[in-house]
Amino acid sequence: MRRHRCNQVVRSDSETESESDAETMRCLSCKEEYAARDAGTCKECYEEAGETEEELKREIEDLKAKVAFLRFWSPLDHAHRGSPTSPGPVFPDVVLVAYDDGSPGLPPVPVPAHKAVLVNRSPVFKAMLENEMEESRSGTIKISDVSYDALRAFVNYLYTAEAWLDEQMACDLLVLAEKYHVKHLKGFCEKFLVSKLNWDNSLLTYAFAHQHGAKLVLDAALSLITDNMDKLTKKEEYMELVEKDPRLVVEIYEAYLSKQVNTAVHKDT
């Protein structure tokens, strides 16, 4: 199907010449003249644009239907914190346990899942569960330094590709996504963190992104910092970073100097 962009028109030479009694226009897509009464585009291109719009709508609906068909029902749709071992009709065959649950004195709460889903979503889980490792034999995967809520959200994402994020949850899920090589989730969290980036959180975000290899967040935070170098040393987080990880401070200044050099070169050319 021929596709055009007909949102602009130009007047033909006949406007200034009285060769025709009726004023004509020229379509920028097909370059053909048409009567001005058609107001904006030739009839053929207008109809073709309408067909294209309908075709795109059908494709979108088809994609939505495929996503709905392929979506797994998460065992978390049936298991709640008060009854974590009530799987309903989904029959999980493995549980994940958070060992930073924030509930002192209480046993860790398991998060039910299916081995087939974990193996399909993460190469780390795949290696863990397809070999004769402790997790494969026991059916329990212990994950340290993670809250129950973050682990639950992580497992739910593996089934649904959906997650509710705030800045803390985005950081927690990004760490899990990096650890278990879930690239789609990591990219999702990175985009969210970039959308929340501002001067106040720029240094902490930069340090976090550097630690976890979040390049999209790293580049955005570094760009914001180097654009505001006159305010950098006044930040409380700056002195903390100097003491804890001076290497990152050096990298910030190197990036700033590189930006200055590039700006000077562009001005000269």
Rank of each mutant, 00 (worst) to 15 (best):
Y148W: 11
P110N: 05
P112K: 02
A214M: 09
F208R: 02
L185S: 06
K244V: 09
T52Y: 01
E59K: 11
T233C: 10
P110V: 01
D172A: 13
L204Y: 00
V97C: 02
S144P: 03
A65C: 06
Y256S: 13
E237W: 03
E15W: 15
A79G: 09
S29Q: 13
W73A: 15
V10H: 15
S20T: 12
D268W: 07
L28R: 14
K259H: 13
E44Q: 09
L165G: 10
F125P: 05
C42A: 14
E61M: 12
Y46P: 03
L174M: 03
R26Q: 12
E19V: 14
A150Y: 06
I60S: 04
K191H: 09
T233H: 03
E237R: 05
D227V: 01
M133T: 15
I143S: 02
M239Q: 15
H266A: 13
A116M: 12
F72R: 04
S136L: 09
E190Q: 15
M1I: 08
D13H: 12
D268E: 04
V155P: 03
N228P: 05
R152D: 04
N120S: 11
V146R: 04
S74Y: 13
Y159V: 01
V119R: 02
D166R: 02
A116Q: 07
C6H: 10
D219M: 01
S18Q: 11
I252F: 13
Y157G: 04
C189V: 04
V155N: 01
L224M: 07
A113W: 06
E61A: 10
F154M: 05
